[in-house]
Amino acid sequence: MSGRLNGKTALVTGATSNIGRAIAIAFAAEGATVAVSGRDRIRGEKVIAEINGAGGRAVFVPAELDGSFETARRLVAEATEALGADIDVLVNNAGIFPGSTTADTDEATFDQVYAVNVKTPFFLTGIIAPRMAERGSGAIINLGSWIARLGIPVAALYASTKGAMETLTRMWAAEYGPSGVRVNAISPGSVSEDTSNAPGNAMMRGTPANVSGTPDQIANAAVYLASDESAFVHGVVIDVDGGRTTTAVIAG
């Protein structure tokens, strides 16, 4: 790797599996010191071992994200202490997807999904972004989703939270961008660690990619948005979805 994130610190939520894990590993490979956050300590320690074994630097910070300000404050405090420095890059990745229809969604599920997917990143950003602004630099990366813009039958609740995150990306870019804090988002398509037999491949038919993407491909976009290479990029949502939301390929 080229050391594109040398000297930077990062907090990645939901970093013990899938996209979050790939982002944490990619950040560390590029020289960042990473706070890997998640609920499962065993999985978290495996990610830490993988990063440290490859010569990177990472620490595990457990967190049960419940949408409360106090939980967000505690996570920031513990991550900052473990990193030994202020946070340069925040990745709001943690999220839950119940996959229920609108009529079948009860109030408790609704509240939980919004707590994890929207309230937690809202409060984390509210705590971390002002500190970044005081230093005059920082990057915040939110995770959106292709289904925030291309409707499917069973995803109304989840899609609405990702639509909220894409809107907040633009709002935060306006709020903190003038102080040197870049806020952007990634909108992944169907993603699987095994693309040869991924359930999401059916959704990718008729797209340029014609197959699901991998967590590493999402992580590549995150590295770009975290690095100084994206210094002139503010308030955008990068679609890393194989063309799912933009292009239809018609077979001849």
Rank of each mutant, 00 (worst) to 15 (best):
3 G>Q: 14
20 G>I: 11
63 A>W: 00
96 I>R: 08
16 T>N: 12
40 D>I: 09
32 A>K: 04
63 A>D: 12
39 R>Q: 10
152 I>G: 09
11 L>A: 00
228 D>L: 03
133 A>W: 06
112 Q>Y: 05
209 A>W: 07
248 A>K: 15
120 T>N: 08
87 I>T: 02
36 V>E: 01
67 G>N: 07
26 A>G: 05
236 V>F: 03
176 Y>M: 06
184 N>W: 02
60 F>K: 00
21 R>I: 07
142 N>L: 10
109 T>A: 10
189 G>R: 01
85 A>W: 09
236 V>I: 14
62 P>K: 04
42 I>W: 10
80 T>D: 12
179 S>H: 13
160 S>W: 04
234 H>M: 13
213 G>L: 05
157 L>G: 02
146 W>L: 11
74 R>I: 11
200 G>Q: 13
24 A>W: 02
147 I>G: 01
222 A>R: 04
82 A>F: 08
229 E>H: 07
86 D>W: 06
103 A>H: 05
223 V>E: 09
173 A>S: 15
176 Y>W: 13
126 G>S: 07
87 I>C: 06
78 E>G: 01
56 G>C: 12
174 A>M: 14
201 N>M: 08
235 G>F: 00
229 E>Y: 08
216 D>P: 06
180 G>E: 09
209 A>H: 10
183 V>N: 03
63 A>M: 06
172 W>Q: 07
179 S>A: 15
156 A>V: 13
82 A>E: 12
223 V>P: 02
64 E>P: 05
72 A>F: 11
120 T>M: 11
89 V>C: 04
48 I>H: 02
206 G>N: 11
42 I>S: 15
173 A>Y: 02
125 T>D: 13
156 A>F: 08
63 A>K: 00
56 G>Q: 03
9 T>Y: 02
29 A>L: 04
20 G>Q: 06
212 S>W: 05
165 M>D: 04
41 R>E: 14
158 Y>R: 06
209 A>Q: 14
54 A>F: 07
212 S>Y: 01
160 S>D: 03
231 A>C: 12
223 V>D: 07
27 F>H: 01
201 N>G: 02
221 A>W: 05
68 S>G: 13
5 L>F: 00
152 I>S: 09
141 I>A: 01
62 P>M: 10
168 L>N: 00
222 A>K: 01
146 W>H: 05
203 M>V: 12
90 L>N: 04
186 I>L: 07
32 A>M: 08
242 G>N: 13
98 P>H: 10
77 A>S: 15
59 V>M: 05
137 S>M: 12
147 I>A: 07
101 T>N: 10
70 E>N: 15
167 T>A: 15
111 D>T: 13
69 F>Q: 14
129 A>M: 07
55 G>V: 11
116 V>F: 06
15 A>F: 06
243 G>Q: 10
150 L>E: 12
34 V>M: 04
15 A>V: 12
137 S>Y: 14
246 T>G: 11
59 V>Q: 06
142 N>F: 08
214 T>A: 09
118 V>L: 08
216 D>A: 15
47 V>K: 04
178 P>E: 06
232 F>I: 03
218 I>Q: 01
234 H>Q: 15
58 A>M: 09
112 Q>T: 06
201 N>T: 07
